[in-house]
Amino acid sequence: AVSDRLIGRKGVVMEAISPQNSGLVKVDGETWRATSGTVLDVGEEVSVKAIEGVKLVVEKLE
């Protein structure tokens, strides 16, 4: 699937994400809805860990 190529890629949070609410991330110039187990603020760099349906699962870049 086209989304599989995104796993491991870096992105930037465009709309804040929390465990309760999905947000938006931009990866390779495309905007995706994303979820995370932690709070991520706009502008934070993330990496794509998995894909669930049409949402990316991301975590903060260390």
Rank of each mutant, 00 (worst) to 15 (best):
A1W: 03
A1L: 12
A1V: 14
A1C: 10
A1G: 07
A1D: 15
A1R: 03
A1Q: 14
V2E: 15
V2P: 15
V2Y: 03
V2L: 14
V2D: 15
V2Q: 07
V2W: 03
V2H: 07
S3Q: 12
S3N: 13
S3A: 10
S3E: 15
S3K: 06
S3M: 08
S3V: 12
D4I: 08
D4S: 07
D4F: 02
D4H: 10
D4K: 05
D4A: 06
D4L: 04
R5E: 15
R5N: 15
L6Q: 03
L6V: 09
I7C: 04
I7Q: 04
I7R: 04
I7T: 04
G8K: 04
G8N: 06
G8R: 03
G8V: 02
G8H: 04
G8D: 04
G8L: 03
R9A: 10
R9P: 02
R9H: 11
R9D: 03
R9K: 14
R9F: 11
R9N: 06
K10F: 11
K10R: 10
K10L: 10
K10V: 10
K10W: 08
K10I: 10
K10Y: 08
G11E: 00
G11F: 01
G11P: 01
G11N: 00
G11I: 01
G11T: 02
V12I: 11
V12M: 10
V12H: 10
V12P: 02
V13E: 00
V13G: 00
V13R: 00
V13C: 06
M14T: 14
M14E: 09
M14A: 09
M14K: 08
M14W: 11
M14V: 14
M14H: 07
M14L: 14
M14S: 08
M14P: 00
M14N: 06
M14C: 06
E15T: 08
E15V: 08
E15W: 05
E15Y: 06
A16H: 13
A16V: 10
A16Q: 14
A16S: 09
A16P: 14
A16G: 09
A16D: 08
I17Q: 01
I17L: 05
I17D: 01
I17Y: 01
I17F: 03
I17W: 02
I17G: 02
I17K: 01
S18G: 12
S18E: 07
S18Q: 11
S18W: 10
S18R: 13
S18H: 12
S18D: 11
P19T: 05
P19W: 05
P19I: 09
P19G: 06
P19M: 07
Q20N: 13
Q20T: 14
Q20M: 11
Q20P: 15
Q20H: 13
Q20G: 14
Q20F: 11
Q20I: 14
Q20A: 13
N21V: 14
N21G: 12
N21H: 12
N21T: 14
S22Y: 08
S22F: 10
S22P: 11
S22T: 09
S22W: 09
S22D: 14
S22H: 11
S22K: 05
G23D: 01
G23Q: 01
L24Q: 11
L24S: 14
L24F: 11
V25M: 02
V25Y: 00
V25K: 00
V25G: 01
V25P: 00
V25L: 02
V25E: 00
V25C: 05
V25S: 01
K26V: 09
K26N: 13
K26A: 13
K26R: 11
V27P: 00
V27G: 01
V27S: 02
V27A: 03
V27L: 07
V27M: 04
V27T: 03
V27E: 00
V27N: 00
D28A: 08
D28L: 07
D28T: 07
D28G: 06
D28S: 05
D28N: 09
D28M: 07
D28F: 06
D28Q: 09
D28C: 07
G29M: 09
E30C: 05
E30H: 06
E30S: 04
E30Q: 05
E30N: 04
E30Y: 05
E30W: 03
E30D: 08
E30G: 06
T31F: 14
T31V: 12
T31K: 13
T31C: 06
T31S: 13
W32Q: 04
W32V: 05
W32G: 02
W32P: 02
W32N: 03
W32S: 03
R33L: 15
R33Q: 15
R33T: 15
R33S: 14
R33W: 15
R33A: 15
R33F: 15
A34W: 01
A34P: 01
A34N: 01
A34Q: 01
T35Q: 11
T35A: 11
T35N: 07
T35V: 12
T35F: 04
T35S: 12
T35R: 08
T35L: 12
T35Y: 05
S36I: 01
S36A: 09
S36C: 05
S36K: 01
S36F: 01
S36V: 01
G37E: 10
G37C: 07
G37H: 15
G37W: 14
G37S: 09
G37L: 13
G37D: 13
G37T: 11
G37F: 15
G37Y: 10
G37M: 13
T38K: 10
T38E: 12
T38I: 13
T38N: 08
T38L: 11
T38S: 12
V39R: 09
V39G: 07
V39T: 15
V39F: 14
V39C: 06
V39L: 13
V39Q: 11
V39P: 07
V39W: 10
V39Y: 13
V39D: 14
L40D: 01
L40V: 09
L40Y: 03
D41W: 08
D41R: 11
D41H: 13
D41Q: 15
D41M: 14
D41F: 12
D41C: 07
V42C: 06
V42R: 11
V42P: 12
V42E: 07
V42N: 06
V42A: 08
G43N: 13
G43K: 13
G43C: 07
G43I: 02
G43S: 07
G43E: 08
G43R: 08
E44P: 00
E44V: 13
E44S: 14
E44C: 06
E44T: 15
E45G: 10
E45L: 13
E45P: 10
E45Y: 11
E45K: 11
E45R: 11
E45M: 13
E45S: 12
E45T: 15
E45I: 12
V46Y: 01
V46D: 00
V46A: 05
S47G: 10
S47L: 13
S47F: 12
V48R: 00
V48M: 02
V48D: 00
V48F: 01
V48S: 01
V48Q: 00
V48K: 00
K49R: 13
K49V: 14
K49H: 10
K49G: 04
K49D: 03
A50K: 10
A50W: 07
A50G: 15
A50F: 07
A50L: 05
A50E: 07
A50I: 03
A50Y: 10
A50C: 06
I51D: 02
I51S: 04
I51A: 05
I51V: 11
I51F: 06
E52L: 10
E52R: 05
E52V: 13
E52W: 07
G53P: 03
G53N: 06
G53H: 06
G53K: 05
G53W: 03
V54A: 14
V54H: 06
V54N: 11
V54G: 13
V54M: 08
K55M: 13
K55P: 02
K55L: 15
K55R: 09
K55I: 15
K55H: 14
K55S: 14
L56F: 03
L56E: 01
L56C: 04
L56D: 01
L56Y: 02
L56P: 01
L56R: 00
L56W: 01
V57H: 10
V57S: 05
V57K: 06
V57R: 09
V57D: 03
V57G: 02
V57E: 05
V57L: 10
V57W: 11
V58P: 00
V58L: 03
V58N: 01
V58T: 02
E59P: 00
E59I: 09
E59L: 06
E59N: 07
E59D: 12
E59Q: 10
E59M: 10
K60E: 04
K60L: 09
K60F: 04
K60W: 04
K60R: 13
K60H: 07
K60P: 09
K60S: 08
K60G: 07
L61S: 07
L61N: 08
L61A: 11
L61T: 12
L61P: 07
L61V: 13
L61H: 10
L61C: 05
E62V: 13
E62T: 14
E62D: 14
E62P: 08
E62R: 10
